[in-house]
């Protein structure tokens, strides 16, 4: 089910991976940042599965307005 599309080095999507790391606000040394980049690039197939699986479903967690 997984597709294996990954951002290629230097592509706009690859730049977005770096941008995402900046957005977290974490202070990462280069080794930790590299590990995260690799994990993110490798995770694209899993997320494609998740998008397909979620289609048409309501989330399990719903707001409960009861007071008690």
């Amino acid at each position: 089910m997984s597709d294996n599309r990954q951002p290629s080095a230097g592509s706009p999507a690859d730049s977005l991976v770096d941008g995402l790391l900046v957005l977290t606000g974490l202070e990462l040394d280069e080794a930790r940042a590299d590990a995260l980049r690799a994990a993110l690039r490798g995770g694209s197939g899993v997320l494609a599965d998740l998008r397909a699986a979620a289609a048409g479903e309501e989330p399990v967690v719903v707001f409960d307005p009861r007071w008690d």
Binding site: L26, R32, L36, L40, L50, V60
Partner: peptide
């Protein structure tokens, strides 16, 4: 620490889609 850092990069849409797909597991 590595798992927590990875979790920081997850988008809101990932989480909501996971909770949506969870309905199918149940």
């Amino acid at each position: 620490r590595s798992w927590l850092e990875l979790g920081e990069t997850q988008l809101g849409t990932h989480y909501v889609n996971a909770q949506r797909a969870r309905a199918r597991i149940k």
